[in-house]
Structures are given as structure tokens and as C-alpha cells.
Design a protein around this nucleic acid. Structure first.
Lengths: 348, 348
DNA sequence: TATTTTAGTGCAATCGATTACATGTAGTTT
DNA sequence: AAACTACATGTAATCGATTGCACTAAAATA
């Protein structure tokens, strides 16, 4: 039981009195092998329950057919959906997906990259952690001749492809939608504006206001963390303003949820008195009693496309200097929390 | 750039005019190596930016330090949390986690197992798909000398360890809780009773009823799928009964949610007229306007423990016949949907 | 001083599969 | 029948790291 019953091409070759090379060629459908031997090899391989050793193959070929995916946390719907997309796209091509978490720590991120490189992955997909500033560990990946692909959260690194959504557009769409509902004083719950994604959402928000003749008001912009408490706190502060906003575009569903809860406590009617729109289309947004409008980042697609970009690069056997930047279009999911005209709009 | 700049122990050995064996021993802290050489090797290894090739190591040792995790879908909170638990527990021990999805198909499950075995994983963690009946592919894993560990959904296979929650207890707890709220006619939305987990939840429900002097009524038991629509449909049927139930213990949060939505439409007051309790503690349950009671299956812990069981087995270098069955205790999360006495109970 | 011990290295095989090159054997051509 | 072409297969090196066994030189013992 402990001897694993491992069958190798040598075992097959002995049984058939041919060389291991012949067996290998037969199994790989090398045209130089006669069809008789080929079939003979195939059938005996099946009989002996032969399994190719991908490790040996990988060592020889230099291709492990494994890719790494590094995300802050795996059990966040957004990330696990991306992983699912990658897995489903790459699986049929014989690739396996190795997952790693950074917990938003840059040093963990660096470690993960190192061990993935040791493991001889053929490529690495990643969403950088919030605390990442340095890019040395990324360039190292390229130097080792591996592919690197960023999704959602990226930094500009030469030679690295990326797949992101158009956060600016998402911010713009959300805000424009709120305006279309008659809102005039639209607040914004932003994340850390040093991060590209939040900066872009913010800029889209500003741009939409301006394009519709509304003046951005810095007092209406609150910096929040992506959780319920932070949203509730921001909502409380917001409601202390003399001139209260009549809507908020939140860069996070969780913050938006916190705001909903807080405002309801204060007796605010949503969407009649106040409209609200979140970000990420977390599953709970559609299950809330008052379903919440949000931005769908199409994570499954994002994963699939990232995988496709990887496959393209692997196939085109050229030098590694390929660099592809894909920007996906976000989808605005209009739900009750910001919908004053249910009859007129397509509602989810 | 394409030559990968790969540094091997041979490169180091040439530079230092020693044999590769010496380098290998030095790097592995073999005591037979003099401390001078050892340090020399270490520093030059660092200088030359040497990275060990885990593939080669794996091939030589027969241990890849990779494990496979097979789940129906990765982007389900329950499963991704389990994966997170496994990853966090195994990562520090140098293991990588390879993930696979079955989409609930037995044939995909079999394929995944095969390719994982080819990849020479050291063990496989899995939750079997709903359509799995055959166990041949599981015994094959054991025959190859690899460890197999089931979590949550299992079949009885000799030699396979498992980590599950006590579904019977969960069903019992939920039902007993509903009874404690004064409910007398408690319905049950069950999943496919051919599956062990649903059977156990159902049995716990029956047992709780009987132990509290209530007669189980087959008309109160509805077989549902784990989605909102199925829950709504079941609720509708349930509400057509002449003697309407006053509570339901649902084996799925989604079904419970469907029921909540349907019953509210019909003007039923929850929890005053009707109590409801779900299963899995999906994130949305606590974010609903009417937060829903549910059973927490402690997936993170489940993953951690599964990983610990694996590590134990790997460490104890004995024969493979170790078989450990861990049963975790579920946690009842009492929330508003089934709480008629908010003041008295600890509410989440 | 002769002999045994021991610390430190090297040699070469090994893990399993792949592949350039060499070899052999029909079958074809002249 | 000699010469050559194709086709089929074998030989052996290779990927990178590990490790049992052999070996040398220095240290310890007699």
C-alpha cells in the first residue's frame, strides 16, 4: 500500500520489450511510431493503470502547467469569483490553479511570489495588496521569465498585463444615475484615495457632477473603510451637516449598507428622501429587504479574460515583452435603494 | 530574458569549486558539512540569487508539498472559507493549495482527482458533489498512497478521514429553538434526503419535535432546492395548507430567504406570526432588514481542522490506515427572524 | 611512529519523462 | 545485386536536487 503502485514508462517498456523512449513517443502520439506499437503501448498503459508523472514532465520541459493566483483573501465573493473564472478558463488547457492569500500585507505578498516561483509556476495572477508600494518583487517575476498579470488592483509595471474594470466610468455611471433620479446634493463615501481604484471612482463621481452642472462639495466626501461600521459612522457625520445630501455614491457595498442601516434608524425614507448606491454587487445587496443598487464588476469575466490574456502570451512564443491592458466595462445594477421610478427602469 | 537566469546548485558548485552534493548538503544544513563551507555556500547562493527548484525536489523526494482541494464551486462563501482555513493552516508548513471545482458533476470530480494524482499532490481534500454515488475514484487515491480527507459532504470510505459538522445536532438545535419561541407547528424545508447532510438535519428536526411532545407531520415537510425560488414556491404551497405552520426550519438560507420574501408578500408578520430559521449563516443573513437566524457551520475552523488532520497523518509516518472522523459542533445564530423575545436572548 | 577514527567531500545513481542522434531493417530504385 | 531512402526503434544525455557509498586528510589513539 505504501509502495504507491507507481507505474512508469519503464515498467511498460519492460513488459513490451521496447525502450522507454518508444513508450514515451507512443504516448505522445509521435508520428515516428508505428501504429501497432502505439496501440500496444496505449492498451498496456491502460491495463497497467499507468499515470504520467506531471512532475517529471514539468522538470524536463520547464513548464509546470501550474499558475499562481494571489489575492488579499479568498473568501471574498469578488475574489473567489475571479478565481473561479480563471480556473474554468485554464482548466481545460491542463493548468492547475494554486491560490495564495496576502491578507493585504506586502511582505506576505513577496513571500508568496517567491514560493510560487520556486514551485515553477508558469505565470502569476494577482491583485496587489493595499499596502503594496514597492514593485521589485514584480519585476523579479518577469526576470525569471514568468508571466505576470494584474487584475482589479494594479500598479504600472512595464511588461505586466492587466485586467481591470473602468472604475472612473463606474463612478460616473453611478453618480449620473443618482442625478437622473432627481438627486442634487450627492455625497461620496470613498475608500483610500491613494489607491488607484478608489481614486478613479472618485474622479468619475466628480466628473459626473460637473458634467451635470453640479458643484462638487468637499464636505460631501467622506473617507471610509470597507465595512459596515465605517459606513454607519460616515452616515452619522453626514447627517449632522446643515445642508444634508440627498444621495450617496459609496465606493463599497459594506459602507453603503452601514449607511442604509443608520439612516433608517434616523427615519430617513429610502429612496424617497435619499438615494444610495454601492459598489461591487455583493450577493447581499440583492437580498436586502430594500435591495441596493450597486456596480457589478463582472468578476467571473475578469478572471476568464485574465486567463485568456495569459494563454495568448504563453502561445505566442515570442519574447516576454507583451503587455496587454484590458479594461472591462462595469455594469450598473439599479435596485430599489436608488430607484424612484420603479415602473420606468429595468429593475433587478 | 528568456534564459530565465536560472541558478542551480551546479552553478554554485562551479563558482566555489566544490561538488553539487556539497552545495546541496550545505543548503540543507547537513551536519557533515563544515561551517565554513556552509556559510560560504549560503552567501554565494544569496549573491547569485539562487532559488531551489521545488519541482526537482519533489520529483526526487516523491513529495510535492502540494495538496488538492476539490469543491463544487469556489465562489460560495462556505467553500471559499473552508479553503481559506486550509490554506492558512497549511501555508506555514510549506504546502500549496491547488483548487478544483466539480460543478456538482461526478465525472468532473473523477477527472479532477485524476489530474491531481498526476500532479503528485500529497493529499486531497474534498467535499463530494451531489451527484456522486460511486466511490471507486476515492479508493484509487488511497491505493496511490495519497491522503484523502472529506469535509462537510462525505461518503463512508474506509481509510478516509473526514471533518463535518453535526448536522443532526444543528437540526435539533434549530427546531428546539423554534419550539422555545412558542412555535407548535413547525415545518421543514429539506434538501435532497438522499444526501447525508440533509438527512441528518431532517432527523434532528424530527427528534427535536418528538422530544418536545410534538408530532411530526409529513405534510409539513417540503423537499426544496437550495435557491430562493424553490423557497418561495415551498412557502406558497405551505400557505395553502388548511392548518398553517407557525414556523419553518429550512436546511438552506436561500430557501429560507425565498420563504421570507413570499410570506411577507402574503402579509405574514415575522417573527410575530411566523418564525423562520435557515442554514449556513450566509453573509446576507445578517444584512437582511430582518436578520435571519441560521446555523453557522464554522467553515474556517472546518478547513483548519481538516488541514490539521492531514498534517497529523503526514507526520505519523506509519501505514496509511489512519482514519479520523471529526465532528464539529454547529453554532446557532439567533436573529430577529425567529426571535420573539429580543430582550432575553443574546442576539446577533 | 604506526594505526585508527572522524570530519568533510566527491562520485555517481536516482526520481520519470523527453529528445537529439545513432542504428537497424525493410522496401525502393537503378 | 548494389545503393539508397524511409521508417521504426534504441542509446544516452538531460532537467535539478538528493543521498548512499567511497575516499582523503587531519586528528586522536596506541
Amino acid at each position: 500500500m505504501k509502495d504507491n503502485g507507481k507505474v512508469t514508462i519503464y515498467d511498460i517498456s519492460k513488459r513490451l520489450n521496447v525502450s522507454a523512449a518508444t513508450v514515451s513517443r507512443a504516448l505522445n502520439n509521435n508520428p515516428k511510431i508505428s501504429s501497432k506499437t502505439r496501440e500496444l503501448v496505449f492498451t498496456t498503459a491502460k491495463e497497467m493503470n499507468y499515470k504520467q508523472n506531471r512532475l517529471a514532465q514539468a522538470l524536463k520541459s520547464g513548464k509546470s502547467k501550474n499558475v499562481g493566483v494571489i489575492v488579499p483573501y479568498i473568501n471574498r465573493n469578488f475574489f473567489s469569483s475571479i478565481i473561479r473564472g480563471i480556473e474554468e478558463e485554464l482548466g481545460p488547457h491542463g493548468y492547475h490553479v494554486i491560490i495564495c492569500q496576502t491578507h493585504e500585507q506586502m511582505d506576505t505578498e513577496m513571500e508568496q511570489i517567491n514560493t510560487l516561483l520556486n514551485t515553477q509556476v508558469d505565470g502569476i495572477f494577482m491583485s496587489i495588496s493595499k499596502s503594496t508600494t514597492n514593485i521589485d518583487h514584480f519585476t523579479k517575476v518577469l526576470q525569471e521569465g514568468k508571466f505576470l498579470i494584474f487584475f482589479d488592483r494594479k500598479l504600472d509595471v512595464p511588461g505586466v498585463s492587466s485586467v481591470v474594470i473602468d472604475d472612473f466610468k463606474a463612478g460616473y455611471m453611478s453618480t449620473a444615475h443618482l442625478i437622473s433620479q432627481g438627486c442634487k446634493r450627492i455625497a461620496h463615501f470613498s475608500g483610500d484615495l491613494n489607491l488607484e481604484i478608489y481614486k478613479n471612482r472618485h474622479d468619475g463621481y466628480i466628473s459626473a457632477l460637473e458634467n451635470h452642472g453640479l458643484k462638487p462639495d468637499p464636505r460631501y466626501i467622506f473617507t471610509t473603510l470597507s465595512n459596515v461600521e465605517s459606513g454607519a459612522a460616515a452616515a452619522r457625520k453626514m447627517w449632522e451637516l446643515k445642508e444634508k445630501p440627498d444621495a450617496v455614491f459609496s465606493a463599497s457595498d459594506y459602507t453603503a449598507l452601514g449607511a442604509v442601516q443608520e439612516l433608517k434608524k434616523q427615519g430617513v425614507r429610502i429612496p424617497e428622501d435619499f438615494c444610495i448606491s454601492g459598489f461591487s454587487n455583493e450577493p447581499f445587496t440583492q437580498y436586502m429587504e430594500l435591495p441596493m443598487s450597486s456596480i457589478d464588476q463582472t468578476p467571473l469575466r475578469m478572471g476568464q479574460i485574465a486567463a485568456q490574456v495569459f494563454l495568448e502570451q504563453v502561445d505566442s512564443d515570442q519574447e516576454l515583452s507583451i503587455e496587454k491592458k484590458v479594461v472591462l466595462s462595469p455594469e450598473l445594477m439599479v435596485r430599489k435603494s436608488s430607484n424612484r421610478s420603479l415602473a420606468e427602469l429595468k429593475v433587478q
